[in-house]
Design a binder for these strands. Sequence first.
DNA 1: AATGAATGAGGCTTCATTCAT
DNA 2: CATGAATGAAGCCTCATTCAT
Lengths: 219, 219, 219, 219
Amino acid sequence: MKRPTELVPRKRPVQQRSKETVEAILEAAGRVFASHGFAAGTSNRIAARAGVSIGSFYQYFPNKDAIVVALMERHMAETTATFEALKDLSDRVVMTVEDVVRHFVMALLNTYQQDPALFRVLFEEAPRPLGIHNTRAKIHEAVANALVPQMGRLITAQLRDPLVSAHLLVEVATASVRHFVLHTPAGLKAETFAEELIVMIVAYLVGPEPTMTPRSANP
Amino acid sequence: MKRPTELVPRKRPVQQRSKETVEAILEAAGRVFASHGFAAGTSNRIAARAGVSIGSFYQYFPNKDAIVVALMERHMAETTATFEALKDLSDRVVMTVEDVVRHFVMALLNTYQQDPALFRVLFEEAPRPLGIHNTRAKIHEAVANALVPQMGRLITAQLRDPLVSAHLLVEVATASVRHFVLHTPAGLKAETFAEELIVMIVAYLVGPEPTMTPRSANP
Amino acid sequence: MKRPTELVPRKRPVQQRSKETVEAILEAAGRVFASHGFAAGTSNRIAARAGVSIGSFYQYFPNKDAIVVALMERHMAETTATFEALKDLSDRVVMTVEDVVRHFVMALLNTYQQDPALFRVLFEEAPRPLGIHNTRAKIHEAVANALVPQMGRLITAQLRDPLVSAHLLVEVATASVRHFVLHTPAGLKAETFAEELIVMIVAYLVGPEPTMTPRSANP
Amino acid sequence: MKRPTELVPRKRPVQQRSKETVEAILEAAGRVFASHGFAAGTSNRIAARAGVSIGSFYQYFPNKDAIVVALMERHMAETTATFEALKDLSDRVVMTVEDVVRHFVMALLNTYQQDPALFRVLFEEAPRPLGIHNTRAKIHEAVANALVPQMGRLITAQLRDPLVSAHLLVEVATASVRHFVLHTPAGLKAETFAEELIVMIVAYLVGPEPTMTPRSANP
DNA sequence: AATGAATGAGGCTTCATTCAT
DNA sequence: CATGAATGAAGCCTCATTCAT
């Protein structure tokens, strides 16, 4: 009867009532993790915060980790949607490199700023081997791949290897924004940070040709 | 389950044997955390691995968190030393911007590659409020400040705000390298990653003037 | 870190104090199982009865089942010793078949009557797959094998298959005595039961020749 | 965790559908207990296996124990019927002692071999104080009493006390067969076991006179 | 009646920490 | 000082049972 650490929801809620319960649990879990951290975000605390019994918690989630997984999946779905939207946009309207990069960075920033404390728990504190790792890697991969043609279209300067550049871009942007938001270095405002990061990425992509963002104000 | 807030070692090891014991405990803690993670890196397990009794463990460390702090302090001392060395070097010999950036990025990479699993625990999994946070912020601050004059010396292109740029540089480099090492995205070799990251940072610092790193292979 | 249901004691008590603790736990477990049954013989209840903390319980026993195993092993060691003693005795002094059978049955009866309620739990209520099963089978096997030569020596009537008879004897005697003691059918005194059981077994072994036990009191 | 003491079905199933539901639950319970044991044979699992909701389960059975009782009662009814049949048979046709004993033993063997795993749960693992105990004792009593006249009719050798002998016979036969089936000692085939058990019982009943079953092949 | 969502007492077990030797 | 036995709060999770729909 050993049930090897299941991470998928236990039971699909069919009635309206149970859908609400699941929703309440997820919502409560987010708030509890954000305020107490992963270790102190106990299943009982989450259930209490959700206003349901601990039994209900375990009707829908086989264990505590499954909650983290569910929360991450939510976040990832959102992230993916954001990127899709950006891709669609750049397909429809003419955008400069800087426009694309700005959208990208801002989307990341907005995402993480929604709930920094929670994301700290989800992305750093919660134990890895949740299988979620692969999912995240796949998303990055997909985004990077999607970027390649965009880059080809927009960037005249030739990059050594567009795919590598796309990967780098995704990694650097994600890591930097996340790190900035989750650990908020004092003395650096989000807008300033974002603006400079955009400059950096654009400088990298556009190369040693003049850009539309004047670096210096000197006449 | 009491967790007092003292985070400093309980007593200075004055005798040689004590020093060895402390050393053994720290070493064991590092290995245990790396292989088991923070939560499963129990104090008893660490003591056993170190070959000392649990009583001795608490002789030298007031609680489990103190071990994490001690381990982080070690790491930070090392990091600081590395940056000092880089500063000294650039004071003594003539270095291009690229040289400095390369040294910086490579030093970060080497540091994190020493023991990714352990650093994952120290920097991400271990609960924050260890006060250590400030220390780290201070180090970043110091490094950023130290970079400003270097940048003034080397960089002709004028940056909007050298201090902001220094901060950005430190944040982006640290976050990217750490993220790369701790989560190793498949399909991106460390050397490639480092090289491109260097290019990006240099492009940012040097601005839209030609650099010594040819971006394109075009004849 | 899954520890697949260990059943062996966790830690060998080295100090005198801990030996006493282990002893107290086993003793308490016996009493608790006897009075509450297996399901209600909770680890906390056992620890409390033993006057030790639940933590101490788990220092020495990895789980509740391990206690059952330990208790059974004790019982089996005793049983084995009893049989050895009987074998030795029959080697040293001249015994009739009836003497041997009587000793055998009485030994069984005494054993089970020590603590019927506990043995009910150990032999019936506690879930089987404790690996203990094999041990018990081996003991029965050993006893049966040891009986064969004795039977050859004592029994003139030829049995169809002495080994089969030995097995039957062990099974029937054990099952009957255990069943009698653990479920005490009303209206049958232990002495009467034992006496008749002895008669039955002797009749089987000696066969259709006159025995020294007059079957009837017929005038 | 409340366990009321009612052990009778909550309501008589008057409609056909109800009867089928009860039947399905009992059948499912038997299979679940047999494959999972008593403790892991949860009421939810049983309901699921029966294809009914847990609500329906409690519609027909006040609690989990009631299921065990119902299952045992079924078994006992069957056993009783078997004995009745044997009694009837021996009333109608001329049977030797051996015939009767063989019928008796074989009937027991057949009964237990139907579903050893389930009977293990019902007779050993399930907690006693089910009141069922008395019922079983009464059945044994009845069977023993019924045997007395049979024995008087068939057995010339005089037994010390026919009633005691009848009891012994019932106890020994039941205990031995059950024990054999539920714990299947390796290296003893059911037929061999049954045959020898019959021999033993006949030897006991018939006493030191020659029987029709030659024990030895001695010339 | 039937359904299945909800409940929560309570069992098992861990592990940071203390304390007697 | 070292040892390791002991502690117990607290976390995870199950499952018999109830109750709203």
